[in-house]
Design a protein around this nucleic acid. Structure first.
Length: 589
RNA sequence: CAGGGUGUAGCUCAGCUUGGUUAGAGCGCUAGCUUGGGGUGCUAGAGGUCGCGGGUUCAAAUCCCGCCACUCUGACCA
């Protein structure tokens, strides 16, 4: 590990009075999530505009440490770093068609000559442009090129501080191979490199199978830092190592056995009962006895999707099943206009014939006996609805979102569900961009073939936020040592006791000289202030020099995470810290 | 994008309903004394285009209109 790389030089240490660490006693009104609050309060971050932030010295050190870990692991895997511009010309985006596809998420600007540009939300186009111009032969492959820099997305609603910002730092690596087999190798390398990166960052994470979505291509994995505040939901098997995004995980139908015989269809009044819960309670039936009918606009055409009342429609599966490019939920007005039924009273009975729309149902719905569903008439539902007799569908498919209790597709053990923060994703892009942009090589047989690509991203600033989200207590942040802004803080209890100050100074100098990443709190503040700040900022190790230390020569060492306190002589200090910090940074690898 | 909220000192907020001295508090900041192992206590200070623009009025932080910014909720269950 090359610490000298860090700007600011951890070799020389730092004094609190020399830098800027504006900690806040109160929680700023603008922040609602823990990571956002703590990063602001710990003096690491300040907002400039919605979703746009300044990283103060301490915050920037964390970012640099994460970047450095990423660099080392990308390089270890054979990656080579380069730098691309933030401003990108529109032309290249027109070539792949993404200038129009990207929509309002893209920051656009114009130069004085009226030429269109954008602030790069990603760099597939640019990197592929370089490759198509410079790489002509399979002999030049494989290539793994990466960059770490700011990216821009004009989010509809930036929130959660660094978690969903409009300007953020990303590492993107692009792999270029002559064939699918090569891509497989590159992908595996990245998979392993990513695991190492997040382990080294000291994060509790899971790798999950995900849906490729808009970016296109084949296999993809997401790297999720587990945290209750995460935006994504993942399921993982309790017995094997299978894990997946809830959108992706396949679901077997879970049939609830019924002894009943089909009874005659019956319309019942359900005034003002719209939601599944309301209707189920009103009629005294369990919610899984209901058929929920959801309307979507799929490539401009309406489609009705049926799932059991206790299930959630999985738009990704709907989209994939229909081979559609866009799936949008219909608005209340659209449903009213197209079907003349207010939300809450739609059902499959007669829907297909009357409105001539496509109806698809989740497997589970098929097995319902005497189900309840909307009667397509305001204020009424049907009871005793049965598949085949009362309604037909165009197809049955797996269309719901997985959850805890669903069964693992590999070993049939039940899933557990958790929330996570997506900090990385790896994709097999295939030839989508290389074809669109004409990035080809001549292969061994002299035949021109499109380069097979992969892309691999890590949200650096988001990783920082995720680390805080996962590692904090009521007093503040608890940085994993490998990404802490400083590893050790030295605090003299009394700034007026010259013996203490001299000893603290000595300890600080010796740690800095030994290459330990140390900061010295030399402010003429009361001890309580410095202790509070140390806890808030979350330095892994705190060294306090008080009267006791002056008298018996033993300095107090307190670990932020475990709250463990121990005492060492000045001579023991450096070796102790060196080995224990090294251990705590590496034990995750 | 739809709906709601907020905008007054560096930060957290009060004042606005019912217009009327010199616009307030706590924290932070400055100075002094005090204190010195978990945000010390006291004293004295500095600090404000009351988001911006317009209107009503003898008089606007306060009422009206417009704009802007920030923020929350929703945009996933019918």
């Amino acid at each position: 590990m090359n610490k000298k790389f860090l700007v600011g030089g951890s070799m020389i240490g730092m004094r609190v009075t020399q830098t800027l660490i504006p900690t806040l006693r109160e929680v700023p009104a603008e922040a609602d999530t823990v990571s956002h609050q703590l990063l602001l309060r710990a003096g690491m971050l300040r907002k400039v505009a919605s979703g746009i932030y300044t990283l103060l010295p301490l915050g920037y050190r964390v970012v640099m440490k994460i970047e450095q870990i990423i660099r080392e692991e990308m390089n270890r895997a054979g990656g080579v770093e380069l730098l691309m511009p933030i401003i990108q010309p529109a032309e290249i985006w027109h070539e792949t068609g993404r200038w129009d596809v990207y929509g309002p998420e893209m920051f656009r600007l114009r130069d004085r000559h009226g030429r269109d540009f954008c602030l790069g939300p990603t760099h597939e186009e640019l990197i592929t442009d370089i490759i198509r111009n410079e790489v002509k032969s399979y002999r030049q492959l494989p290539l793994l090129l990466y960059q770490i820099q700011n990216k821009y997305r004009d989010e509809k609603r930036p929130r959660f501080g660094l978690m969903r910002a409009r300007e953020f730092i990303m590492k993107d690596l692009y792999s270029f191979d002559k064939d699918e087999a090569g891509l497989e190798v590159s992908y595996q390398k990245m998979y392993e490199a990513y695991c190492r990166v997040f382990k080294r960052c000291g994060l509790d994470f899971r790798v999950v199978e995900a849906d490729p979505g808009a970016i296109g291509g084949g296999e993809t994995h997401e790297f999720m830092v587990l945290a209750d505040t995460g935006e994504s939901k993942v399921v993982f098997c309790t017995s094997c190592d299978y894990a997946a995004n809830v959108e992706k995980a396949p679901c077997d139908p879970q049939i609830i056995p019924s002894e009943e015989n089909p009874r005659p269809l019956e319309m019942v009044a359900t005034p003002d009962m719209r939601t599944v819960k309301e209707v189920a309670d009103y009629l005294g039936v369990p919610s899984h006895q209901l058929i929920k009918t959801m309307f979507y606009k799929v490539d401009g055409e309406y489609v009705a999707v049926l799932v059991r009342g206790d299930r959630v429609v999985n738009e990704t599966k709907v989209k994939n099943f229909l081979g559609a490019t866009s799936v949008e939920i219909a608005s209340e007005d659209e449903v009213m206009e197209a079907f003349g039924v207010p939300l809450g009273y739609a059902g499959p009975v007669g829907l297909q014939e009357k409105d001539k729309i496509k109806v698809i149902g989740d497997h589970e719905v098929r097995y319902l006996v005497n189900a309840v569903t909307g009667a397509n008439k305001e204020g009424y539902h049907y009871r005793n609805v049965n598949t085949g007799r009362d309604y037909q569908v165009d197809a049955w498919a797996d269309l719901r979102v997985a959850g805890a209790g669903d069964l693992c597709p590999r070993c049939k053990a039940p899933f557990q569900a958790k929330r996570g923060i997506e900090v990385g994703q790896i994709f097999k892009l295939g030839v989508k961009y290389s074809k669109a942009l004409g990035a080809t090589v001549l292969n061994e047989n002299g035949k021109e073939v499109p380069i097979v690509m992969g892309c691999y991203g890590i949200g650096v600033t988001r990783t920082m936020a995720a680390a805080v989200e996962q590692n904090h207590d009521e007093d503040g942040i608890i940085w994993p040592p490998s990404i802490a802004p400083y590893e050790v803080v030295v605090i003299p209890v009394s700034h007026r006791d010259m013996l203490q100050v001299r000893m603290a100074e000595e300890v600080y100098q010796s740690l800095a000289a030994a290459g330990i990443d140390v900061i010295y709190d030399d402010r003429p503040e009361r001890p309580g202030v410095k202790f509070k700040d140390a806890d808030l900022i979350g330095y892994p190790v705190r060294i306090v020099i008080g009267s006791r230390a002056v008298e018996d020569g033993l300095v107090e060492i307190k670990w932020r995470a475990s709250k463990e306190i121990l005492y060492k002589s000045k001579e023991e200090l450096v070796p102790y810290l060196r080995s224990s910090l090294e251990r705590s940074k590496n034990n995750c690898i």
